[in-house]
Design a protein around this nucleic acid. Structure first.
Length: 861
DNA sequence: ACCGCTCCAGTTTTT
DNA sequence: CTGGAGCGGT
């Protein structure tokens, strides 16, 4: 039942792997270098096929990262290339770190010499710094975050007198991002698209945005690749230099690449010298921009089978290709909405003639039932290369599907299921709840807080995206480069200094008139009497402070300087005074920021990398349930996975269906596949019949994906969260047949089912532990269920003994708190106790309102 | 300049 | 039902 060991990813031999191919294979395997032992034949082929293009289709849990790292080790140990001659790209810093780590383990030493292992953006940024002047930048250019970008665009919109309510800066940022993802410079944007924004001003705004970036000596994320592509196209000699350097190219998660990344890879993967010196003056792709379907590649050879080429991809002359190895899984492509092109992977053999395609289909993660369910589901997709995951693991437990009355019951049921798992000895760290949309998390959080069940939310704002980190960075940016207007504007009135819009406007006017940065404008303005005395003094202080810090920079270590700046500016104090729940965390983050600076030589080096490299690394030591979206679950695995909210409209998401049609549906289905394949031993799907959407209750119908699960691997269970729909009612073992019948028409209104079940429940009636039931009733968050359902929900009851146990287990029955105590809670901040019920407190929080929490989760304030 | 009110819109997220 | 933005009052 229980898996014995996790197959060792690096050196061990997976225990359930066959002696494939018999004696001959084994003999051969034992001959090879030791890092090859333990690879299955396909993995081994993927590692050893070094020459020419290779596409490794690596299904979930088939050892993808292991193949990538082993391949690098193999290249190195075969002497085919030196570490600095291998280009190895990932999407996330986390993935890059993971690869470095594993490589280090495999090679037995730290991987100092792999300078070109990193994310697309960090490597693109690195290359761009070398040739910054070719992009009208200086090598110390700033990488703008989304906030800066939007602020800049807002200014441009204002300058153009465009109503930024009707045409929000965010939307324009999204458009520009989309264009950059597709590898389009301003001149290449199809005129129809450029005209869509702000009555035809879209293209012009893109152009002026790019101009402003150059003036600010800044690049956004898209530029890091786009400017590379431009430089490579316009300077074949530079391109050739990189082509010669990179003897091998490895790409992780190829299914997530966008057009720009694809073009970048294509350029770099041509054999050196194959790139004909194109006429640099004409930017190829410009013509195609007007006529998107005319990429010349698509006309070559095999018609029909491959999707049409991207516009603008003709820059890469089809010539001999170097050793590029792309690893990915078309069934896990879930980022289409942000520019990823599944077509890239579907078209690989066409784009890289002579490519070898290797399928990894042996799954070392999940049990048979889970894998069968996932495979069966994804088989409903049409646009896929086709893989069949196999396992030699046990069948294991069937995937369960559980219906709940509403989302509250769903949360309660999952909460109880988790407690049961916990009592069976499962680690909370091995339990995850994967939701489609982040607003689903709230209900679980509320429930867990009530239960006192430790949980952690994965995803959410990244470390460097947090306001306090960006503020701190802005201070440092202004010190480092006085011309960084965006940074200056961000912090000039943070903390509050009485420098509001009027002052900023004045500075802007000055700066524009005299063509100087805002900071210099400020310096000049304080010498005049254009400002009111108060603002003037304030601004004078700010200028003086920055002058002082810049002087100190010469004689102070950069970490110390950062600390000084944060203290002297009053920024630290601002958060110290803040009484909200997250203030403490923010101060902690600031400390962490200062600490992280130690890894860098100096302020300049730190700032150059920070926006690309920082990410939060939460303390994962505590045992806690993980709560996250399906998207952020990609790449992770857990013994027990809960998949709530499988309802039409939510999952698959109505919006995706509306906007993307069939392609959207397929992407949603891949999301379901990703969710299921995260589970090693247990996958538990839930759907609710009623859900609150935008505040009002609506009735939902089960997701069509439920119908697409294979009956043989799925078990219908009853909700634990108040077994309102007992086994007898409409919810027996036969229910799956119901669902299959459901199959063809999804129109069956869910409420019909709900009605039926409601009847069933009425008939059942009767409660169990009366006394506790009362407590539970008072305790459950007051459910303002829809009109019809009020009577029903008040009837709800469940195996409450579970809760009883937890209560007993927690802190005993007498609370150490008294009425009207001031308390602090990690999540909700400060509040006052208004009611005590054993160890359960009702607290009126200053900011979060009234909540019920277990007393062990609060402390006296 | 800042606070508090009303109104509106409302997936998924990395770099 | 929430959070963010924009507006008007102090």
């Amino acid at each position: 039942m229980i898996r014995m060991t996790e197959p060792s990813k690096i050196t061990g031999v997976p225990d359930h792997q066959p002696a494939a191919g018999g004696i001959a294979a084994r003999a051969r395997a034992s001959v090879g270098p030791k890092y090859l032992t333990g690879l299955n034949p396909e993995q081994r082929e993927a590692v050893e096929t070094l020459d020419g293009p290779v596409l490794v289709l690596a299904g979930a849990g088939t050892g993808k990262t292991r193949v990538l790292t082993t391949r690098i080790a193999h290249i190195l140990s075969q002497g085919r290339a030196r570490p600095a001659e291998i280009l190895s790209v990932t999407f996330t810093n986390k993935a890059a770190r993971e690869m470095k780590h594993r490589l280090g383990q495999m090679l037995g030493h730290a991987v100092e010499g792999m300078p070109w292992l990193g994310t697309f953006h960090s490597i693109g940024g690195r290359i761009l710094r070398f040739h910054a002047e070719l992009a009208q930048l200086k090598s110390n250019f700033t990488v703008l975050d989304v906030d800066d970008q939007v602020r800049l665009l807002k200014q441009l919109l204002q300058a153009e007198k465009i109503d930024d309510k009707r045409w929000p800066a965010r939307m324009l940022a999204g458009l520009i991002d989309g264009w950059k993802n597709r590898g389009l410079m301003p001149s290449q944007v199809p005129s129809g698209e450029a005209a869509m924004f702000a009555n035809g001003k879209g293209g012009k705004l893109y152009t002026s945005y790019q101009e402003r970036l150059k003036i600010l000596n800044a690049a956004d994320f898209g530029d890091l690749l786009l400017e590379n592509i431009r430089i490579f196209r316009e300077h074949p000699d530079i391109l050739r230099q990189y082509q010669q350097r990179f003897k091998f190219i490895l790409v992780d998660e190829y299914q997530d690449t966008n057009v720009a990344q694809y073009l970048w890879l294509r350029l770099l993967s041509q054999a050196p010298g194959a790139a004909k010196p194109t006429t640099p003056a004409v930017i190829p792709g410009q013509a195609e921009g007007l006529n998107p379907e005319s990429g010349d590649e698509s006309s070559a050879g095999d018609s029909g089978s491959a999707p049409p080429a991207h516009p603008g991809m003709t820059v890469a002359p089809s010539g001999p290709t170097k050793n590029i190895c792309c690893v990915g899984d078309d069934d896990q492509s879930i980022y289409g909405w942000r520019g990823a092109e599944v077509d890239n992977i579907l078209r690989f053999e066409h784009d890289f003639p002579g490519a070898k395609v290797i399928r990894l289909e042996r799954n070392y993660r999940s049990t048979g039932h889970i894998l069968a369910a996932a495979s069966h589901l994804i088989a409903h997709n049409e646009g896929r290369l086709g893989k069949t995951l196999r396992t030699e693991d046990v069948e294991g437990e069937k995937v369960t599907v559980t219906g709940s009355w509403d989302s509250e019951e769903e949360a309660r049921g999952i909460g109880e299921e988790i407690e049961q798992l916990q009592r069976q000895g499962e680690k909370l760290n091995e339990i995850a709840i994967l939701v489609r949309a982040s607003y689903q998390m709230r209900e679980f959080e509320d429930r867990f807080v009530t239960l006192g069940l430790p949980y952690r939310v994965i995803g959410g704002p990244r470390f460097y995206e947090r306001a306090e980190i960006r503020d701190a960075l802005a201070y440092l940016r202004v010190i480092n480069s006085p011309a960084d207007d965006l940074a200056f504007e961000r912090i000039v009135n943070v903390p509050k200094r009485g420098l509001g819009d009027a002052t900023i406007q004045l500075l802007h006017d000055h700066a524009r008139k005299r063509r100087i940065p805002l900071f210099e404008a400020a310096r000049a303005v304080v010498e005049t009497d254009e400002l009111k005395p108060k603002a003037r003094g304030s601004l004078r202080d700010v200028v003086a402070q920055f002058d002082r810090w810049r002087a100190q920079r010469e004689v102070t270590a950069h970490t110390d300087l950062a600390q000084i700046v944060l203290d002297e500016s009053g920024y630290t104090e601002m958060w110290q005074k803040d009484r909200s729940a997250d203030a403490a965390g923010r101060l902690e983050n600031l400390k962490e920021l200062v600490r992280s600076m130690e890894e860098f030589e100096n302020l300049q080096g730190f700032l150059e990398h920070i926006s690309l490299v920082m990410d939060r690394e939460g303390g994962a030591e505590d045992d806690a349930v993980s709560l996250m979206t399906l998207h952020s679950a990609k790449g992770l695995e857990f013994d027990n996975v809960f998949l709530p909210g499988w309802e039409e409209g939510l999952f698959p998401s109505q919006r995706t269906l509306d906007e993307q049609g069939r392609a959207g549906l397929e992407e949603e289905r891949r999301l379901g596949h990703v969710g299921l394949t995260r589970a090693r031993r247990r996958a538990m799907i839930y759907f609710a019949t009623n859900r609150r959407i935008h505040g009002t209750w609506s009735t939902t119908i089960p997701s069509r994906f439920l119908d697409e699960l294979p009956a043989a691997n799925v078990e219908i269970t009853e909700s634990k969260g108040g077994s309102a729909w007992g086994g007898t009612g409409g919810y027996g073992a036969s229910r799956f047949d119901d669902m299959e019948a459901f199959g063809s028409s999804y129109t069956t209104p869910g409420w019909q089912r709900a009605q039926a079940n409601r009847e069933g429940n009425r008939n059942r009636g009767g409660g169990r532990s009366g006394s506790f039931e009362e407590e539970a009733a008072t305790f459950s968050t007051s459910s303002s269920s829809g009109p019809d359902f009020g009577s029903f929900s008040s009837r709800r009851r469940g195996p409450l003994t579970i809760e009883g146990e937890l209560v007993a287990k927690s802190t005993g029955t007498t609370s150490e708190f008294s009425l009207s105590d001031r308390v602090f809670h990690q999540k909700f901040g400060y509040g006052r106790v208004t009611k005590i019920d054993g160890n359960k407190l009702t607290i009126a929080f200053d900011k979060a309102g009234e909540k019920k929490v277990v007393d062990s989760f609060v402390q006296r304030a």
